[in-house]
Amino acid sequence: MYSTILVPTDGSEGAAEAVRVGLTLADRFDAEVHALFVVDERFVATDYDLVVEEAETEAERALDRAGRQGEDAGVAVEKHLRTGLPHEEILDATEDYDADLVVMGKHGRSGLDRFLNVGSVTERVVRRAEVQVTTVPVSQEASE
């Protein structure tokens, strides 16, 4: 049913839950998994090397966590790091990696989007994706 699953992550518990669901589906359907972290270009200015370094370190941690979850589940995970507008990069990645399913958390890290009330990354992906998108809530267990 699915051959390639894209799992965006931001290192949050919601994203970790989505990775778990994505890996379960990948195992069931013998699908490839691509974990993606997008460094939001709106919060990273090239003049601030420390901010860029911190964002990339956070990205590496989140992708490594997804990779470890994959190892634990017996599913290989390809890790990708991009910089740009998160929803646009996720949509582009579905095409680039030929994904037929996106699995993402309903709630990730809060940021400027929430403050400005312009909609979440997940909402934007769900509205614009040309492939199926499965949204995963944070379980009560994971949020405690």
Rank of each mutant, 00 (worst) to 15 (best):
L6W: 02
V7Y: 00
V7W: 00
P8E: 08
T9M: 06
D10M: 04
D10V: 05
S12L: 13
E13T: 14
G14L: 09
A15S: 15
A16H: 01
R20F: 02
R20I: 01
G22C: 13
L23F: 07
L25V: 13
A26K: 00
R28P: 05
D30I: 04
E32H: 15
F37W: 08
F37P: 01
V38Y: 00
E41Q: 13
F43L: 11
V44A: 11
A45R: 09
A45Y: 07
A45L: 06
Y48C: 06
D49I: 12
D49H: 14
L50D: 15
E58S: 15
A62D: 03
L63Q: 01
D64P: 01
R65W: 11
A66Q: 07
G67H: 03
R68P: 01
Q69E: 14
G70R: 03
G74V: 12
V75D: 07
V75K: 04
V75A: 08
A76T: 13
V77W: 05
E78Y: 03
K79F: 02
H80V: 04
T83V: 12
P86F: 03
E89A: 15
I90C: 10
L91R: 04
D92I: 02
A93E: 15
Y97N: 04
Y97E: 15
D98S: 11
D98R: 09
A99S: 15
L101S: 08
L101F: 10
V102K: 00
M104Y: 03
H107Y: 10
R109G: 06
R109Q: 13
S110H: 14
G111W: 03
G111M: 07
N117A: 13
V118N: 09
G119E: 09
V121G: 06
V121K: 02
R124N: 12
V126Q: 07
E130F: 05
E130W: 07
V133E: 05
V133K: 05
V133G: 03
T135P: 08
T135G: 08
P137E: 10
S139R: 13
S139A: 13
Q140F: 13
A142C: 08
